[in-house]
Each structure stands twice: as C-alpha cells, then as structure tokens.
C-alpha cells in the first residue's frame, strides 16, 4: 500500500478555505447565540408565565435532540415552512444558532441564579428597580461564573460545525472528505482532516483551561 501525502499539499487551498469556513461558522454562530441565549434566559427568569414556559420548552427541545438530526430536519423543513429556498449554509447557521442558544440560555440562567439572593435584596432595599439590580449587581457577578462555561460551549460548537458537512456545507470536514472522494487518498486526507482539527482545536482547549483556572469559582 503506497501513500501519497503530497495530495494534502496540492489541495492546501481548498483545505484552507474549509478551515476558514469552520472558524467563520463558529464565530458567527456564537455571535448570534450569545444574545439568543440572553434573550431566552431573560424570558425564562421573567414573571410572565407564557414567556417563561416558551423559553423552557425551547431549551428542553434542543437539549434532548442530537444536533445532526436538527440539521437534517432544518434542511428539509425550512424550505417548506417558509416557502423559500435557503442555502445549505443558512440552514446550517440556523440549526447551530438555535442549538447553541438553548445551551447558552441554561448557562446564563444558572449563572444568574448562582448569585446569592441577598445581593438582589440589598440592591432592592436601596430603592433600585429589579432591572437596575439585575444589570448593576447580579449580572456583573454572574458574568465571572458564566465565562468559563461559555468557553467550553465554544469548543463544543467548534467541533459541532463538522456536522454540517452532512448537508454539504464546505467547512473543513466536508472539504476534506470531498478531496478524499476525488483523489481516492483515504488515509492521507482523513489523517490530514484530523490533524487540521487538532491544530486548531488543541490551542483552543488550552485556552479554555486557562479561562477555567482564572475565573474558577472560589466561593
């Protein structure tokens, strides 16, 4: 069995584009999923029963489904539901954003709830509105606890972008596997794919560790 590792170098352009797409998807998803998660968390924490239940249902829905299924489902249902043809990229983004927003919602909610009730009471006792108390006292403290969890979610998201390859979005996994199909260089391309993910993911994992250490809860 002979291996031609040159094929990786030959296709470096496509692989680079794939890697960029992976990173781009991760960044864009998180940019949308953080406000999404905040919105859902606020809905859940509000005293309005309808908003609270809607948020709970949304979060439970996505916590209990495999992402790859959500991606497929979005791919088939979105054109029918909205009577518009969406690009695979848009579909992928929608599925990813909805999924990560649900997880972020839980993260934000748990973070806010972890702040002692007394802090809210002290702020209210001064005459602050609930809103002021939230934004000036509770959230700044919760942010410290939320950041490490958000960092872990980021890494999961980075890996999950590989799943959108199943609907032919040209991120790293899809691109690598396309090249494999074209060149029949299975071992080389699949190893290259793994290596490229590793090169991007390993430093991120170490960064997440650092964040956990720096912002770890020392109650």
């Amino acid at each position: 069995m002979n291996f031609d590792w040159n094929v990786i170098w030959t296709h470096r352009g496509a692989l680079w584009d794939g890697a960029l797409m992976t990173v781009g998807l991760t960044v864009l998803t998180m940019l949308l999923a953080v406000p999404g998660g905040i919105l859902l968390a606020l809905m859940r924490l509000s005293s309005n029963k309808m908003l609270s239940s809607a948020s709970l249902a949304f979060v439970e829905f996505f916590r209990n489904l495999p992402l790859i299924l959500v991606i497929y489902w979005a791919f088939y249902v979105m054109p029918i539901a909205f009577d518009v043809q969406f690009s695979a990229l848009t579909t992928a983004l929608v599925a990813l954003v909805l999924n990560v927003s649900a997880y972020n919602a839980e993260t934000f909610r748990a973070g806010i709830n972890s702040i002692r009730k007394g802090q809210m009471e002290a702020a209210l006792a001064m005459g602050m509105s609930r809103r002021q108390a939230m934004f000036k006292v509770v959230i700044p403290q919760a942010a410290r606890r939320i950041l490490p969890v958000l960092a872990s979610t980021w890494i999961s998201l980075f890996k999950d972008t590989s799943l959108v390859s199943v609907i032919a979005v040209s991120e790293l996994a899809y691109t690598s596997m396309q090249i494999r199909a074209q060149t029949f260089r299975v071992l080389e391309m699949l190893t290259a794919m793994a290596a490229l993910y590793w090169l991007m993911g390993y430093p991120q994992a170490k960064l997440v560790d650092w964040i956990h250490k720096k912002y770890g809860v020392k109650e």
């Binding site: 890494i155 890996k159 999950d160 972008t161 590989s162 799943l163 390859s165 996994a173 596997m177 299975v186 071992l187 699949l190 190893t191 794919m193 793994a194 993910y197 590793w198 991007m200 993911g201 390993y202 991120q204 994992a205 170490k206």
Partner: peptide, 19 residues
C-alpha cells in the same frame, strides 16, 4: 484527553472506519 477535546467525534468515527 486534550486531543479528544480538539477533534470532533465525526472525524474520529470516520477515521477509524475508513482510514
């Protein structure tokens, strides 16, 4: 452990089965 945190499960599965 850190490698498995960096590489998606999809990639691991595909590598084990095909490569």
């Amino acid at each position: 452990v850190d490698t498995m945190r960096a590489i998606p499960i999809l990639v691991v599965l595909v590598w084990i089965y095909f490569a």
